Computed example of a mutant assay.
Amino acid sequence: MSHIASLIPSQPPDSALALQPIGGATQANRWRTEAMRSHATPRLLFIARGQGRIIIQGLTHGYFANNLIYIPARTMYGFEAGPTVFGHLLTLPRAMASEWPSEAVHLRLRDVMAQKEFLTLFDGLERELSSDRQHARRAAHYQTGLLAVFFARQIDNQRNTGPDVDRRNSSAARLVAAYTDLIERHFPTDKGIADYAATLGVTATHLTRCCRQTSGQSALTLLSDRRHYEACRMLRETRAPIADVAQVAGYGSAAYFSRVFQARAGQTPSAFRKSVPEQRRAGKH
């Protein structure tokens, strides 16, 4: 396992406050949003327009305009970002994580005044992040702190209401959430669905049934999706040999990885890597 850890590229941007637009992903880049992934630090997803679905810890939610979705560190998720969707993904520094919830939260801002208040705070954050003025980064961190306060107040206003509360607390949702947590810890290994099910004290059939119930996907699909994202990320953002990518992403061998990857992506790992300009492959996330 130590060898695998040494192959995984460092991810310094995860420690920095950053904002990136999302939506309208091309077919070639849909893996960046739709494939299951997680991050070392939290994320806040703001949907400005459009609608789609997001899967967090194996539970599917529908999202619409004026939705805020908070995703804690090391939480597996993936979402649709079709041509009608536009929004932003905010990377929250590790040092600020304690100011945000310890679990995933999906807020639907239906009140017009709440929407205006959020947009005012968000516009201020975006302005400071794009500014070259003195102390802009410091101002951006303060703006993010105000966003955290706004988010906490909205949670208090919406706490224990809506259909998502019962869905999250169902036995199936709890089991699938535990399964996705295990995937995050063990996907680089050769553990199969039966191994995960045994760890959770259920049968593989029951685990798959619960995954389909909460996310519409099988247990195997969720695991394969997480491995595929890691493989894509390493191919696009590092110069690691194909055999090392296969190992880090949890495939048994480079040959098996190449077959599975080509079947899913429509091209070999080498061709996928060559489709991105060399200067963008910096060896880090």
Results as ranks from 00 to 15, higher is better:
H3N: 02
S6M: 06
L7A: 00
D14A: 10
S15Y: 07
S15W: 08
L17D: 07
L17S: 08
P21I: 01
A25K: 09
T33K: 08
M36K: 02
H39F: 06
A40I: 02
A40Y: 01
R49H: 10
Q57C: 08
G58L: 09
G58W: 09
H61G: 00
Y70W: 01
Y70T: 00
F86M: 09
L92M: 09
E103T: 15
V105I: 12
F118S: 01
L121S: 06
Q134T: 00
H141V: 10
L146K: 11
L147V: 08
A148H: 01
A148L: 02
F151W: 12
A152S: 15
D156G: 15
Q158E: 11
P163M: 06
P163D: 10
N169T: 07
S171G: 12
T180D: 06
G192C: 13
G192N: 15
Y196K: 12
T208H: 05
Q213I: 00
L220T: 07
L223W: 03
S224Q: 11
R226F: 05
H228F: 15
M234F: 10
D244A: 15
Q247P: 10
Q247L: 13
A249I: 07
G252Y: 01
R259F: 10
Q267Y: 03
P269V: 08
P269W: 05
V276N: 06
E278Y: 13
